[in-house]
Design a protein around this nucleic acid. Sequence first.
DNA 1: AGTGAAACGACCGTAGA
DNA 2: TCTACGGTCGTTTCACT
Lengths: 159, 159
Amino acid sequence: MTSQPASGPGPGSAIDAVSKAIIEQLQEDGRRSYAAIGKAVGLSEAAVRQRVQKLTDSGVMQIVAVTDPMQLGFSRQAMLGIKADAGLLAVSDEIAAIPQVSYCLVTAGSFDILAEVVCENDDDLMLLVGRIRSIPGVRSTETFMYLSLRKQEYNWGTR
Amino acid sequence: MTSQPASGPGPGSAIDAVSKAIIEQLQEDGRRSYAAIGKAVGLSEAAVRQRVQKLTDSGVMQIVAVTDPMQLGFSRQAMLGIKADAGLLAVSDEIAAIPQVSYCLVTAGSFDILAEVVCENDDDLMLLVGRIRSIPGVRSTETFMYLSLRKQEYNWGTR
DNA sequence: AGTGAAACGACCGTAGA
DNA sequence: TCTACGGTCGTTTCACT
């Protein structure tokens, strides 16, 4: 049992090498034209468009703008390691519902939940941690302030 | 400093409400046409295009395909909490250089470095952890296996 | 599922307020 | 920095394979 965003891959929809090549093109530039992609992967423009449609509809891929929080004035980022004692999914979903939480997942290890938060300043962060600590089921939190981002990639699964 | 190679906001380039509105449009759909965005934010197509160009050139935003690793056969994901004793930036960059590492940052807290890794299976993950442990300067690693992803957002800073 | 062709719409450079 | 405009290229639809 895992979380499926919108819809799973249909029975007869294998992701072959050509589709992976298309995804790679779009990971380099999400606005690259279907014609240019077609030239690169050896397919007609219409065929590329159909495949991209399927890939996005099935949730395998999405083409979106990704921003740098620092340059937008959100200079305090942190990962929170959270220990909880009951109803892990319910607790994690309550945390996920907080706007400043950009990333939230249930883990196996000495933390039960990891949550990444994006804040404008230290006050916001402090209030946010307090809010999360007060959620029923949360036993403790540990804050890992981001000092230096060294790598951030979105091309998972096509290397 | 007067000129930056490829990143950093220029001196007179404030990110105003209109640019944020443009970013929001592209966070919903990275392929939305400049004309449609212009209609939504009250600007001409050419003006939207110029602003998008600046935003991407300065690194504030990038338009890319984001994939779901699970659906691409990469079913083992984990966050590694790493303790290191010297040359934190050098160590973190060495870790960041590993292909399976999708996210790597230096933190303040009981871990010095956090690294997210994406693997096809348990064997890959095991080898990877061994490799990271053998990097000079790495004292210890702790693995947090991903069990259930509850939230993953890319619209940082425009909420 | 893929191709090809024609109508349409988007994109890009340039010029100008 | 924005608007306006024309040439070019990309996208869309449809008939066909």
